[in-house]
Every structure is written in structure tokens, then in C-alpha cells.
């Protein structure tokens, strides 16, 4: 009997050791650093270009400090009619470059980044035709979800039937106490005919199912949010971005990657990049905005 108990205890103890995690070394190939270029160019908007170098995973550098910023890059940006934009490094000196001029023409914009020791990186973006916000309405207590009533902000616009369009929408509320606009991320949407995703409060979608239509985008906010707006009589600012394909695709992949980090069972996400001989994104956009007093 005693030996049987000893056997039972021994085997049960071994069964408890059921999860072992240990660090391991993996011999990854050492990838040469590439130019990383991040920039979005908008019609009549300030232009910023952020440049640094990628890091190989085989590098010994720590993640936060190992990225080399490049302060001496030569950037050439040309718009659709041949106008060029000159750049200087910004006050913050973090690899950010500010353009002296604005892009004032829709259409193709090209960028070329030259640095010492690395390949010249190039890319092309498109500043699309602006889509205009027609009207903005609100509606209280439209739907119920998770024990909470939601109100809606309804944004009306007409999609351009001659192009494939990609959009992003942001809503800002004005804070009197701080004298600032703060972004307010929607909690849900009943626009079921769209494929929407939310990236840091900005809602992205395309015109695949609404091409050429006069459409009403409905963004839902909780009843407490609506109540606050009523109490504060707060104006709201709606910003409608018409963006190009690289901007949309890049953000979509980025959203997936951030959502799936630390999940060993999700499929890896390859982030879209349109930088030739480099990585990153060069995207185009144009905005229309409207300030409304709904309450």
C-alpha cells in the first residue's frame, strides 16, 4: 500500500510540471539595415517625413534605443505638376523633416530619400479627389448593446463613382476647460454594409459596397457621451479623410499587427510597404471637415 501511494505521489508531481518556458537562442540571418520612411502628404497641409533605419532581429541592440535616426537625409518631393518641396530637419531632431512648401495639387506625389551608405529609397503617393461632407445629424438612443443605449452621429457624403475610394473619419469634441479638441472614438457602428476598422480612434473603410452612392455613415456613442455633449453644449468637429490605397492598406495591416501581438496562434501580419529599397509608408490624403453644434 505504501509503495502504491509513493508511486501515486511521484506520478502526480510529475504531471504538475506541465508547462516549461525557457529562453532560447535562434540563429537568425543578420539583415542589413534599411531606410525607414514614414510620411503622409495632404493637400494644402504641412508635410512631415520621418526617417530612420530598420534593425535586424539578429542585432544585440535593445528595442527602444537601437533605432538609428538619420539627421542628414536629402529628401526630394515632387507633386503632380512638377513642383518640388524642400525640407529641413525639425526642431525636435528625431529624424523628422518638415517641408517648407505645401502640396497644392491633387494627383501623384513622388519622394526620394538619399543618405550616405544606404540605397536611395523612393515611393509614390496619390492625393485623391476630395469627398465633401454634406450634412451631419445626430440621433439619441438608437440601439442597445451590452446593456447600454447608444446614440448615433450620422455623416452624409457622396462617394465618387469614377474612382476606387478609401476613407477615414475622426470625430473631435471641444473641451472648454482645456481649450482643445479631443478625439472621441466611436463604440460601435450600425453601418453594416461597410467593412470598418478602428485605428486609434480613426475609423477606416472603402467604397467597395457604396460606390457612387450618397451614403450615411453612422457612428455610435454611449449614452453617457451623448449626455456630456448635451450638458456641455459642446461643438463637434467631423474630419473626413479621402486617402489613397497605400495609406489604407498600411493602416489596416498595422491594426491587425497590433491586435495580434503576443498571440502565438494568430497568423503573422506582413505590414504593407510601398517604399522601394526601404520600408515604411508614403501615403496621400485630402480632408474635409465640418464643425457642428448638434445639441
Amino acid at each position: 500500500m505504501k509503495s502504491i501511494i509513493q508511486i501515486l505521489l511521484f506520478t502526480f508531481f510529475c504531471f504538475l510540471i506541465s508547462n516549461c518556458t525557457k529562453p532560447i537562442e535562434i540563429d537568425l540571418p543578420n539583415i542589413a539595415p534599411k531606410l525607414t520612411v514614414n510620411s503622409f502628404v495632404g493637400l494644402n497641409d504641412s508635410i512631415f517625413v520621418y526617417i530612420n533605419l530598420s534593425q535586424s532581429k539578429a542585432s544585440e541592440n535593445k528595442l527602444d534605443t537601437g533605432f538609428v535616426v538619420l539627421d542628414t537625409a536629402i529628401i526630394t518631393m515632387t507633386d503632380a505638376v512638377g513642383n518640388t518641396v524642400e525640407f529641413e530637419e525639425t526642431y525636435w531632431k528625431g529624424g523628422e523633416y518638415r517641408g517648407f512648401e505645401l502640396i497644392q495639387n491633387s494627383g501623384l506625389v513622388t519622394i526620394q530619400v538619399e543618405t550616405e551608405d544606404y540605397e536611395i529609397a523612393t515611393a509614390t503617393a496619390t492625393i485623391p479627389t476630395k469627398t465633401i461632407i454634406d450634412t451631419v445629424f445626430h440621433q439619441d438612443s438608437v440601439s442597445l448593446f451590452n446593456d447600454e443605449y447608444y446614440g448615433e452621429i450620422q455623416i452624409n457624403f457622396r462617394d465618387n463613382p469614377n474612382e476606387v475610394n478609401y476613407y477615414a473619419v475622426e470625430l473631435f469634441e471641444y473641451w472648454n476647460s482645456k481649450n482643445t479638441w479631443e478625439i472621441r472614438s466611436p463604440s460601435q457602428s450600425t453601418s453594416d454594409d461597410l467593412i470598418l476598422f478602428n485605428h486609434f480612434g480613426k475609423v477606416f473603410f472603402n467604397d467597395e459596397t457604396i460606390n457612387g452612392q450618397a451614403y450615411t455613415l453612422k457612428l455610435g456613442y454611449g449614452s453617457d457621451v451623448f449626455n456630456n455633449w448635451k450638458i456641455n453644449d459642446a461643438p463637434l468637429k467631423i474630419v473626413l479623410y479621402t486617402i489613397d490605397f497605400p495609406y489604407f492598406e498600411y493602416t489596416k495591416d498595422l491594426n491587425k499587427a497590433f491586435n495580434n501581438q503576443d498571440n502565438p496562434f494568430s497568423e503573422p501580419t506582413i505590414i504593407y510597404s510601398n517604399i522601394n529599397d526601404g520600408v515604411g509608408i508614403f501615403g496621400g490624403y485630402v480632408i474635409d471637415s465640418m464643425v457642428v453644434d448638434l445639441f
Binding site: 495632404g42 497641409d45 512631415f48 534593425q55 523628422e96 475622426e170 479631443e182 486609434f200 471637415s289
Partner: peptide
Amino acid sequence: LESYRVNPTSANPFTGALQF
């Protein structure tokens, strides 16, 4: 194989321009 920086963006609340 490698890692690189991306920048979440937000719009300038006064002009609407994107900024890092």
C-alpha cells in the same frame, strides 16, 4: 527578421493636418 518604427498619427486639432 527585422523591426522598424511606425508612427501612429493624429490630426492637428486646429488645421486637421496629420502630424507625428
